[in-house]
């Protein structure tokens, strides 16, 4: 379904600011897989998601989706089958437009826009139905400006807009990090429901280890542009937060040791 072959990405190569954001990343996801990604700041998690979405091109390596090499396919074209939610709730919605108008925009993924037709009764009913699955009453506020919604409500709407046209892949980049804890659990539950219902192939970056363990069937831990640890199905079920911390310390310790060895030379 989704394949990453030997992906490399370096920012500002051959300068003092050189950053190796991704190094030799090779992975494969099956249809319906839900992988959570954890890792320290600057580990390359967002860069990896940008690779998948096509907002960044790899220096080396290939991205395959559904048996097609999409490495050179621009973001805008790839968006036809990739849904995305970002950390900032302001990114995924248009504040000056109403809820139903925002939903209309997300239909652009699958439909051509008409110059003759506005939002029809039928479409509106469809929107209402989808919105009601969020269970936060947005279905009764179709004509409210999205700018008037709270951060949590906006993020719930972004999530719905990213998923209700059934993309092949869903990318979530710390999409709960900007919310307060009560809203955070709302969005996490919604994510779980939406992904389960549609069996979406999902890649989710999170800064919370418990979330990473609770959701999905796979887990990747990243550091310095590499996937340094991974767990699948059964392995993942038995995993605990202390395990993850230990795993991380382990790799970090090795790194520091080798750095020291290098310095000693």
């Amino acid at each position: 379904m989704l394949q990453l072959n030997n992906i490399h990405k370096t920012f500002y190569p051959n300068t003092p600011d050189e950053r190796r954001a991704l190094q030799n990343v090779s992975q494969e996801l099956n249809s319906g897989d839900f992988v959570t990604i954890i890792g320290s700041n600057g580990a390359g998690k967002s860069t990896l998601l940008n690779m998948l979405a096509g907002s960044l091109l790899p220096d080396e390596g290939e991205v395959w989706i559904d048996g097609k090499n999409v490495t050179a396919l621009p973001e805008e074209k790839r968006a036809k089958f990739i849904g995305r939610v970002f950390q900032n709730p302001l990114t995924g919605t248009a504040p000056g437009m109403t809820i139903e108008e925002n939903m209309m925009i997300s239909l652009g993924r699958t439909n051509r826009r008409s110059v003759w037709k506005g939002i029809t009764k039928k479409t509106r009913e469809q929107f209402r139905e989808h919105l009601s699955t969020l269970e936060i009453g947005l279905e009764n506020r179709l004509n409210s400006k999205v700018g008037l919604l709270s951060g949590g409500e906006r993020q719930a709407l972004s999530l719905l807009m990213a998923t209700f046209t059934e993309p092949k892949i869903l990318l979530l980049d710390e999409h709960t990090a900007a919310l307060d804890p009560s809203k955070e659990s709302l969005i996490i539950n919604l994510t779980k429901d939406l992904v389960e219902k549609q069996q979406l192939t999902t890649v989710m970056v999170t800064h919370q280890m418990d979330q990473a363990l609770e959701l999905g069937n796979r887990l990747w831990m990243m550091d310095e542009g590499e996937i340094i640890f991974e767990a699948d199905d059964e392995n993942k079920q038995d995993l605990t937060v202390p395990d993850l911390l230990k795993e991380f310390e382990n790799v970090r310790g090795k790194r520091m040791a080798s750095d020291r060895a290098l310095l000693a030379k």
Partner: peptide, 9 residues
Amino acid sequence: TEAGITLRA
């Protein structure tokens, strides 16, 4: 219309 909404968005 759908196109008009897209223009505004």
